[in-house]
Simulated scan of single mutants.
Amino acid sequence: MSDDNTTHFGYREVPLEEKAKRVGSVFDSVADRYDFMNDLMSGGLHRIWKRQTIGQTFLRPGHEMLDLASGTGDLASLALPKVGTEGRVVMSDINLSMLARGRDRMIDEGVGEQAACVLADAEELPFPDRSFDRVTIGFGLRNVTRKENALAEMRRVLRPGGRAVILEFSHVYVSALRPLYDLYSFRIMPMMGKLVVNDSESYRYLAESIRMHPEAPALKEMMEDAGFEDCDYTLLTAGVAAIHTGWVY
């Protein structure tokens, strides 16, 4: 159980100030092959989940969207056609290695001028109140040290009528699948990490961080505590992942 001075890094307890550094080391290690490993580990399912996530944003032309933990820019790339040239997408990440790859991708796709990149901590966003119509975060919230602070910041930077959409791993609700999912998570994922990026420990951490992340009802309650309204969630693929949504009125 974490106290006020420690937090979870996977299954380990670490000082609060150390978690961000450790998470940064994980993503520095995997950044070069991040997209390839996502496709390999999920069989491409993550792309379907991300399309569903952007579908839940209800983006319109002219909207301004902040994508937290943007990484290599999957959600940002899907959002840009929806906001159009009169809108904008701000890609934000605490990890420079990941953000640089996202920026390179936007340039390669010819939309570099439409997507701004900001190196920022989700717990202390460098944006004024009511700056955005939508805020998204995909597979990043579980890596944040103080999730409640990040949720409060997401609420703060949204305009009235704004919507937050969170894609995150959740907990498998089909009991018969849990042993297979555990085998895959704790044996096969680290093995693939070792073979592909020569780093099994980073993928072991990723598996552990999923198990330590709040279950969907608990995260919904955290969003409500942060001031979001009409909060809801949709479980994906037997609960492997979930899309959480909340409005600001």
Rank of each mutant, 00 (worst) to 15 (best):
136 T>H: 05
195 L>F: 08
163 R>L: 15
42 S>L: 08
202 S>K: 01
232 D>T: 03
236 L>K: 11
243 I>K: 03
34 Y>N: 05
73 G>W: 02
146 R>G: 00
163 R>H: 11
190 P>I: 09
195 L>P: 02
159 R>H: 04
209 S>W: 07
68 L>P: 06
232 D>I: 02
59 L>R: 01
201 E>L: 08
132 F>L: 03
38 N>D: 09
158 L>G: 01
157 V>S: 06
209 S>A: 13
219 L>G: 02
20 A>D: 09
100 A>S: 10
209 S>I: 10
211 R>D: 14
218 A>R: 15
201 E>A: 13
48 I>A: 13
89 V>Q: 04
197 V>G: 04
159 R>W: 00
126 P>E: 08
97 S>D: 09
21 K>Y: 01
225 D>M: 13
88 R>W: 10
172 V>N: 03
193 G>L: 05
151 L>K: 13
110 G>C: 11
30 V>Q: 08
202 S>E: 06
198 N>F: 12
243 I>V: 13
233 Y>P: 00
126 P>C: 06
128 P>I: 10
63 H>P: 10
232 D>S: 10
129 D>E: 15
84 G>I: 05
195 L>K: 11
230 D>A: 11
60 R>V: 08
200 S>Y: 03
172 V>T: 14
172 V>F: 00
68 L>A: 02
187 R>M: 05
56 Q>N: 05
222 M>H: 07
69 A>P: 06
234 T>K: 12
67 D>I: 02
191 M>I: 00
89 V>Y: 04
81 P>C: 11
202 S>M: 04
239 G>V: 04
109 E>K: 13
53 T>V: 06
112 G>M: 03
173 Y>T: 12
51 R>F: 00
237 T>S: 15
124 E>Q: 13
157 V>P: 04
163 R>N: 02
57 T>A: 14
240 V>F: 04
210 I>K: 03
220 K>Q: 11
184 Y>F: 14
104 D>K: 10
239 G>N: 13
143 N>W: 10
145 T>C: 13
155 R>D: 01
182 D>W: 13
141 L>C: 09
27 F>G: 06
162 G>L: 03
106 M>Y: 07
111 V>L: 14
232 D>P: 00
234 T>S: 15
55 G>R: 04
40 L>M: 09
193 G>Q: 06
198 N>I: 00
240 V>R: 07
95 N>Q: 06
125 L>D: 07
14 V>A: 05
114 Q>K: 14
5 N>F: 09
83 V>N: 02
226 A>P: 07
241 A>I: 05
137 I>K: 01
17 E>A: 09
108 D>I: 08
219 L>C: 10
28 D>T: 10
1 M>D: 10
64 E>L: 05
16 L>M: 12
44 G>Y: 03
165 V>F: 12
203 Y>Q: 00
156 R>K: 05
50 K>H: 08
242 A>I: 09
91 M>Q: 09
63 H>I: 03
236 L>F: 03
98 M>V: 07
241 A>D: 12
112 G>C: 08
204 R>Y: 14
133 D>G: 14
202 S>Q: 03
65 M>T: 11
18 E>M: 11
180 L>Y: 10
5 N>M: 09
206 L>C: 07
26 V>P: 06
172 V>P: 00
164 A>M: 14
92 S>H: 02
205 Y>Q: 06
88 R>K: 15
213 H>L: 07
52 Q>I: 00
5 N>P: 01
247 W>L: 15
114 Q>P: 01
220 K>V: 03
78 L>C: 03
89 V>P: 07
234 T>M: 15
166 I>A: 11
246 G>I: 09
